[in-house]
Design a protein around this nucleic acid. Sequence first.
DNA 1: CCGCGGAGTGTTTTT
DNA 2: CACTCCGCGG
Length: 648
Amino acid sequence: MTIDITQQLNPSQLQVVQTIEGPVLVIAGAGSGKTRVIEYRVLHMVQQNIPPHAILLLTFTRKAAQQMLARASRNDIRCSYVEGGTFHSFAYQVLKKHSRHIGFDSFMIIDESDAEDAIHLCLGKLGLNEKSKRFPRKDTLRKILSMSVNKSLSLDQVVEKEYPHFCEYVPEMEKIKAAYARYKMEKNYFDYDDLLIYLRLLLTRNENIREGLSEKFRYIMVDEYQDTNRLQADITFLLAQKFRNCMVVGDDAQSIYGFRGATHENIMEFPQRFAGCKVFKLEANYRSSQAILEVANAVLNNMTSKYKKELFSAKGTEGEKPQLSFFQDSSSEAEWIADKMLQLRSEGLAFSHQAVLFRSAYLSIPLQLELSRRSIPFQVYGGMKFYETAHVKDVLAHLKIVANYKDELSWARMLQLIEGIGPKTASKIVDKINAAGDLNRAVSSVLPEETRQYKFARDIARLVVTLEKLSDAQVRTADKLETLIDYYLPILKNKFDDWNQRINDFEAIKQIAQRYDSLGDFLADFALEPPDRGVAQAQASLPDEEKPVTLSTIHSAKGLEWECVFLIGLIDGVLPVSFALNDDSSIEEEQRLFYVALTRAKTRLFLSVHHENTGMGLSQFNKVSRFLDSHQVLSKLDQEVRLDYDVI
DNA sequence: CCGCGGAGTGTTTTT
DNA sequence: CACTCCGCGG
């Protein structure tokens, strides 16, 4: 079955889809059908008999890749064999096969909090623990090290720019950096940054492997290119160098990951890196009504962005003017939104077509309370990932040991769950474990022998039995979890007052585990592909009318769209966030974030401000976001002052 | 050496 | 306001 793509696309979209050979840069404004273009380009390529496994689609989240490929597959099943994922997951796949060429027989991915633990450990070894009070904490240290990698800057430069108050500690940080690097190398730990670093290293050093991968992936596409960093651009270049069939898509006005080292210079420099590159611009907006686009354009005009552009609505609908409302506090804001949601639904707009967006996750809490109170189903994106909550990490630590008994961070974490074992005792036991030689000996002999004389020997015995069950290769991961959770339950109840809530997450983990045969892949994916709290899977099969409303950080809303969007907390210090206020480029990024939020809406858009901050003792009074403080923008909005707000 | 209670601190966004 | 760090009692 072939479908006529010329019927589905406008002329510029069609050009992009049909330009398969050679380097291509697509500047795709918000809502310009970028996803559609990628989807049809994949389809077109496959129908030109390019083997699907020769196509590599790199995206920002795996969800994005899956969605595009799933949609392309509806027209041609071969599209589902296209390789797709994030740079990090791609790096994992490649390194899993080839890491020995850069000196690692195997490796294990550690997440941010593991990395912080490791840094903490190095701090101890270096004797920097008793340093003065003003020494940066482990999470700050990790951020500094990571930023220097992702922005390709020296520690000196990062600290000077982002943490000037820590300038005097740069020499110590250099030592920590070296110690941390050595530690990771010793233990075969790769942090997120290492995945990219080592992939680039592999591609640079080993010509055969680079050639092999270039042969394999003759066609490369990168989505959200404005949010890639230097390393990712290098990787793209190395992979595509040979055949030069590389298309990148992005929008500099939507670059919102600068804090992670992303640089829109990648977009600007792409034509220089790939000489002869064709540049296409998609400016017709198929998503939003004209009234919404006018607000977005007004914001765009306030920016000093490099590619000037003006979105125009291809839908041709004028639509309702977006509304700006003021509330006394966040709970009256939440009440009003809940009312509005119910009203919209009674008018025929399903919950699943409505979303609330916010700058920071905590802003959604009053809303979550209100929605629960009214039994409005909702789903939360962004904020604390459930895989980085303490109880989930506790459980996973056990599995990580089974996958790799040398994982001493996990050993330490696991042992310290037992009452009476603190950092010292744990580290003593871990030393013995390290010498054991294999998992079986470590668990069945070393562990009981080393702890025989302590009063927690009984607890250790229980742990040993559990670990022995877990290491049975015949048992499926999902069943192992069953055993493990039985073991962990008493610890959970002891450790957390809210264990009742937390216990739900274990169901989610079990569900996710069902999808994996290999424990290693399960753990890697857990680190790399933030699974949503499990509900998403269950809801996928429901009809639209029964799906919940979405609450999302603006960052997590990237690439998504809804009929109706509520954007809350338009307060100076919230959006733009307070930390950004003294730096022009950060303010710009906040403004782009605002722009991204606005352009998620198709037909209805509600902006809101609450004036009073509850909590923190005395109430504080908020100022309206500076992004709204311009006639250009305000004139495009309908303003409504709520009666429950006392003007002072 | 562990664990608990109190004080103090920095506080966002995500792979 | 949540988490980390510090000092003290067991």
